[in-house]
Every structure is written in structure tokens, then in C-alpha cells.
Nucleic acid binder design. Structure first.
Lengths: 187, 187
DNA sequence: CGATTTCGCTACGAAGTGGTAGCGTTTTAT
DNA sequence: ATAAAACGCTACCACTTCGTAGCGAAATCG
């Protein structure tokens, strides 16, 4: 990871990577094409990223992953806000493609593991925080498994967007939360 | 799809495809390697499957997708049975790899769309049936959105297995159903 | 302003892979 | 038994793509 901090070339490369992915998909991406589009020399790309997987992985890690914790006093409002932010990010088809490609190719790559858990925690942490706050307020039972609840909450949206490739509307968020919240023992 | 019905070669090819995937992954799969392992000539493979994607796709479609509808009188028991069957199928790592690869490469392939919805319906139909039976019995409210409920039910397991790459135990099934069933208005 | 780093450019090698032609051999229909 | 379909085999070509060498230009640092 020899990354010169003041590198404008890095930004150009990652942007061009996303552009190429949007056009031909992650599998058909080649270094030459990224070089052509970005105006960055092929050798420079290799100086930054040893392999194409690293390039795509870093383009994925480049998307904003963290969301602002809402902290209204209401669990439902908090979750709707959090999910809404992620849906907005994942609405970009390129993000979906990069994630799928990373999942497909990254099983044993250590750098993939790092970025994968980073994204995963970025999703789950705000949900966990909202749940813990609700627990402090007594809105959900003390015995509730926070981790499991976070999984159950995030899962429908991930499946809808990533697997089924369907858009998720604001109404979808409400409907799904309607189904889930009673199971958490919420008010 | 000129497929000779009585072809033993077809079986050999698909088996070898899975074997190769298990070894090197779907991306590194080559026709030559499948030919070598299966003992089937390379030309024969091309006669059956025009491209490597088609080969992998058919290997994926070859896994048993349908499950037996249980039809006990209890929604929870039905769901546990259904989910258990799918978990057993998805426990094979090769199945996971093929699914991810298909998702990664198949956005615009029409044959992918067919197999994708086929698998999807194979998962959702038994769940829907169980829900409809429960509704007939009056165990869940009439106004419940069956499709949405099916999504919410299948999603945690898909995420756990496909995205997080974690095994799903029998206890996990129970815990997740514990969280979900009250939301469906179940008894 | 000198020194170091970063970047651009042009080729080039090399290897793998896809995909096919042509022809002989085996199996399956009927 | 005879026609037809399916399979095996051996090359072979074309093409893409990776990855690097080598050297000069430009920016940045101190």
C-alpha cells in the first residue's frame, strides 16, 4: 500500500475504475481500459495497485460507508433514518456490482477480508447503537440479542437490493419495519 | 440448448465443473481444465455450452432447488423444516460460489435471469405456501403481505450464509424464527 | 535551487484462453 | 443392419491481457 497522500492520480484511477465498471462490469475490466479513461499511465496504476482485484477493492472501499447516528428518541425513526442512508448509497448500481464482484473473488484475499468486515461493521454499528439506546430507554427487552436483531433488520434490505436487484423505496422501509419491530418486543 | 437427453457426458461435465470450482473458484475455471478432469473432449463441451458462463450456470441449475412441502399444522414447524432443507443444500461451499459468481456476471444474461428466478421461486414458494396455510387456519392475520413476509423470513439466512459466509446451525434457525414470528402476528 | 519522488510514454515479451476445422469412432434409433 | 446423431482427438489460430523495462518529464520537498 505505497500510497502517496497527495496523489491526484489515485482519485482519477478510482473514478475511472467505477466508470469502467458501470460500462462493462467488473469482470471485463482491464488495466488498459482504466488507463485510457483516467489519462493515467498504465505503469502508474501498477505502482499503486498490484492487481486488478486490488484496484476494484479500493474503488469499493472508497464509497462512503459510515452514516450519521440519528439519535432521535424513537427506535423506529432511528432505524428508518439509518436504513434510508444506506439505501441511498446502495442505489448506485456500481456499488452493487463492486460488492458482488468482491464477494465473488475475495474469499481468501486478506485485503478483501479487511474491507468486507469494514463495510459490514459500518452497516451494523449504527443499527446496534440504535438498539442499545432503545434498550436503555426500556423500549425493547433486556434479553434481546442485539447482534441477531441487527442481522434480521439489515437482511431484508440487503437481499432486496443485492440479490434480487430491486430498488428499495421509502414505503418498503416502512413495510419491512412494520413486520420486524413487533418481533423485537418493541412498544 | 441442443441437449441430448441420454447424455452421460453432460453429467460428467457438470460434475467436473463443480469440482473445478471447488478447487480454483469460478473465475479461474477454464474449459480446458473441465475437459481434462471430466474426460470429455473440449469440442463436446462447446457443443453443449456455448460459453463458460453457460456451463457454470447449468452447473448451478443442476443442484436440487425444490424442497418438499412439510404441511404440519404448525407455521413454526413448517418454516423450520423448509429453512433447514435449504440450509442443508447451501452448506456446500461450491453452491455458494456458484451463486455469487452467477450474481456477479449475470446481470444481463437472459439464461441467468431464468435460472435466477427459478432458484428464487424455489426458495420462496414453500415459504409462501406455509404462510397461506397458516392464514387459512387463522394463525396469522388476513391482511399480512405474504410476499413481503417471505422476504423477511428468507433474508437473514441468505445474508448469513451467502454474504457473511457463516454456517447456519439449527439453533440459529430457532433464534431467528423467534425474532420474526411475533412480527407476523403469529400466535 | 538541488534532490527525490512521482508520473508519463512506448514499446515489448509471454502466457493463457477462447473457439474452430477436420476427420475418425462410437453409440443410439428404427 | 444401416442411417444418424453424438462423441473423441489433435492440432491450430487469433486475440487479449498482464506485467515490466527503460528513460525522460514534471512536480514536490528541504
Amino acid at each position: 500500500m505505497a500510497r502517496p497522500l497527495s496523489s491526484e492520480a489515485r482519485r482519477k484511477m478510482l473514478d475511472a475504475t467505477r466508470a469502467v465498471i458501470a460500462d462493462v462490469g467488473p469482470d471485463a475490466l482491464t488495466i488498459d481500459e482504466v488507463a485510457r479513461r483516467s489519462g493515467v499511465a498504465k505503469t502508474t496504476i501498477y505502482r499503486h495497485f498490484p492487481t486488478t482485484s486490488a484496484l476494484i477493492l479500493n474503488a469499493l472501499a472508497d464509497v462512503p460507508a459510515s452514516v450519521t447516528a440519528p439519535g432521535t428518541g424513537d427506535l423506529r425513526a432511528d432505524l428508518r433514518d439509518i436504513v434510508g442512508q444506506f439505501i441511498a448509497i446502495a442505489a448506485d448500481g456500481t456499488v452493487r456490482q463492486m460488492m458482488l464482484h468482491a464477494l465473488d473473488t475475495g474469499t481468501d484475499d486478506p485485503e478483501f477480508a479487511r474491507i468486507h468486515t469494514e463495510l459490514r461493521e459500518g452497516r451494523r454499528n449504527p443499527i446496534r447503537t440504535a438498539l442499545e439506546q432503545a434498550r436503555s430507554r426500556g423500549d425493547i427487552p433486556v434479553g434481546l440479542d442485539i447482534d441477531l436483531a441487527a442481522t434480521v433488520i439489515e437482511a431484508p434490505f440487503i437481499v432486496q437490493r443485492l440479490i434480487a436487484d430491486l430498488p428499495v423505496t421509502e414505503d418498503d422501509i416502512d413495510s419491512i419495519l412494520d413486520l420486524l419491530l413487533p418481533g423485537l418486543g418493541s412498544t
